[in-house]
């Protein structure tokens, strides 16, 4: 039989209440084993308080060739950044 264990992408939430963050991947036969393995591979030094595992095959990613069409439109919208607007000093902190 010998089929390779599927690949899982691992997401970990660190100590400080931030989002789960992608840390890498590993092979495991099922989700439960993926979490156990992720504990050993990615949190040997207290790196996390919560683990998500997702089958790599279940992730849909944007394609590198779409990078331009997807992200370029935001380049011209500089007014989305607060620094676009000059507020006089007299107004104080805003």
């Amino acid at each position: 039989m010998s089929s390779e264990w599927p690949l899982w992408e691992i997401f970990i939430r660190g100590q400080h209440g931030l989002n789960h963050r992608h840390v890498g991947s590993l092979h495991a036969p099922d989700a439960e084993m993926a979490i156990r393995n992720a504990r050993d591979v990615y949190t040997r030094r207290n790196e996390g308080v919560s683990i998500w595992v997702v089958k790599a095959n279940d992730i849909t990613a944007s394609s590198p060739s779409e990078k331009g069409p997807l992200f370029d439109p935001s380049n011209s919208k500089v007014y989305r950044h607060p620094t676009f607007f000059d507020i006089p000093d007299e107004v104080g902190h805003m």
Binding site: M1, S2, S3, W5, P29, D30, M33
Partner: peptide, 16 residues
């Protein structure tokens, strides 16, 4: 380790 890797895969497939 082959029998063990295969065994876990078989278990995962059955559970699914």
């Amino acid at each position: 380790g082959a029998w063990f890797r295969d065994g876990l895969m078989a278990h995962a497939a059955k559970a699914e």
